[in-house]
Computed example of a mutant assay.
Amino acid sequence: MSSFTEFSAPLSTQFDGEASKVLGKDYWRVTKDFRYYIRSKEGGEWVYVPAGYLTDGASVPRLFWSLLPPWGAYGQAAVVHDVVCEYLSITVNGVPRSITRKVCDEILFEAMAVLNVPAYKRRIIELGVNSFRRWSGVQRPSSTPKKRALEANWSG
């Protein structure tokens, strides 16, 4: 059983066919908002994931889905990672704070440990994420206007 000691609620999502069609790949919608508390609940740092947020789960190339599918024990950590990659921001004592892509990835690795993802899977995901960050040079927020409009128009 997963531990949610650093999450305010379990992950709740549903497949969104309309958003998937518009955005050109499979997306799930978060149906219940939650927070991920970074390091500890008392530390004052968190990531907020709102209901209505669209996520593709873990962005694993299809070739590797038999080893690491888009959804698994790491699913909620992947959603948190999607949010911080998209906005490159966390909340610290109630105030937004910009973060780097490297810090964003470190939050993913921490969240996977909180969810008791086996060490070998965490390591495989860590190698993939770190390689992508270095290879792609992505350092800016990744949101698109189309995706944001679909999230804003959700009436869950």
Rank of each mutant, 00 (worst) to 15 (best):
I125Q: 08
S155I: 08
F132V: 04
M1C: 06
V84W: 03
A113P: 00
F109C: 03
L68R: 06
P50V: 06
P10L: 06
H81K: 10
R134L: 06
T91M: 11
R148L: 13
F4G: 06
A19S: 09
Y53C: 06
S8M: 07
S2D: 08
F64N: 08
S40P: 03
S89H: 04
V22G: 01
D56V: 13
T55N: 06
N153M: 07
Y87C: 01
A77C: 12
S131E: 05
T31D: 02
I90M: 03
L127F: 07
H81C: 03
H81I: 02
V83E: 06
G52N: 11
I99V: 11
I90H: 07
A119W: 11
Y37F: 15
H81W: 03
W71R: 15
P145A: 07
A149E: 13
K41W: 00
P61W: 08
F4D: 10
N116F: 01
A119H: 11
D33M: 07
G43I: 02
R29F: 01
L88T: 10
D26H: 10
V80G: 03
L115P: 05
V114I: 14
V60Y: 00
E106L: 13
M112K: 13
V49F: 05
F64G: 02
L67K: 14
A51T: 09
V138S: 15
N93Y: 07
Y87K: 15
P118C: 07
P145L: 07
L108E: 08
I99R: 09
V103C: 04
F7T: 03
R122Y: 00
P50S: 11
V103W: 02
Y37N: 12
P50W: 01
A73Y: 04
D105N: 15
S142I: 12
R62V: 15
D56H: 11
K25C: 06
L108F: 14
V95K: 15
R101I: 01
